[in-house]
């Protein structure tokens, strides 16, 4: 075995294990979305509770938070309280709107869920799954923040709790409402 063969072998092994190590900590929920900075699809759907049509079109010029959820989703229950908290925090700002999107669910289940856990904002139903695909949704819960210009500014896969809650409220929504620029994560 020559010296260079030995060196190559060692380097390959080190590289491999570095890769595996990084892979362990890589957040499987972190999906770089191609949607950041693009126009938010102006979707519409019937209200879960009333059945009236809700359209994103009517909220143009406001900061919109879209929260995809389902009654069968465990992590949605985890984030429910802090999502309500988030709404409490900003609901008095006339430029803020929060819409839940009920995804891959049965209507009675979704209604029952809202009755049981309570809600303070409107939820539209994604009847054929088209909304979710328009937003490139992988699963629930997923949260999107849309700015006043109708562009998607932020996306998060997973429950909005703990430091994610702090991040979304303080670093994304609050500055957007004040018209300040936000750093867009890739």
């Amino acid at each position: 075995m020559t010296k260079s063969t030995q060196l190559t072998l060692v380097l390959v092994l080190l590289g491999l294990f570095y890769l595996f190590y990084e892979g362990l900590w890589g957040n499987p929920r972190h999906i770089p979305t191609v949607l950041i900075g693009t126009d938010a699809p102006m979707v519409e759907g019937p209200d879960v509770e009333t059945g009236e049509m809700i359209s994103l079109e009517q909220f143009k010029g406001k900061v919109v938070l879209l929260n995809f959820w389902a009654s069968w989703c465990y992590e949605c229950k985890v984030e429910h309280e802090s999502v309500l908290e988030l709404h409490r925090l900003f609901k008095d700002d006339p430029n803020f709107v929060m819409i839940g999107v009920n995804y891959q669910d049965k209507l009675p289940d979704a209604q029952q869920y809202l009755k049981e856990y309570g809600t303070t904002f409107a939820h539209m139903r994604d009847v054929k799954g088209q909304l979710a695909i328009d937003y490139g949704v992988y699963g629930v819960p997923e949260t999107f923040v849309i700015d006043q210009q109708g562009k998607i500014r932020y996306k998060y896969v997973g429950p909005v709790t703990g430091h994610m809650y702090t991040k979304i409220t303080q670093e994304i929504i609050a500055p957007l409402l004040k018209g300040q620029p936000v750093s867009t994560p890739s």
Binding site: F17, P28, R29
Partner: peptide, 30 residues
């Protein structure tokens, strides 16, 4: 076993267990 390659929705991956297997496998191979 570590979930390094499993799909996006393996919410239940446990990096600690993965790290242990990595150290063990790494030692044997090393």
């Amino acid at each position: 076993r570590s979930g390094v390659l499993t799909s996006v929705h393996s919410f239940a991956t446990d990096p600690e267990r993965g790290l242990y297997i990595l150290i063990f496998v790494g030692s044997v191979i090393g």
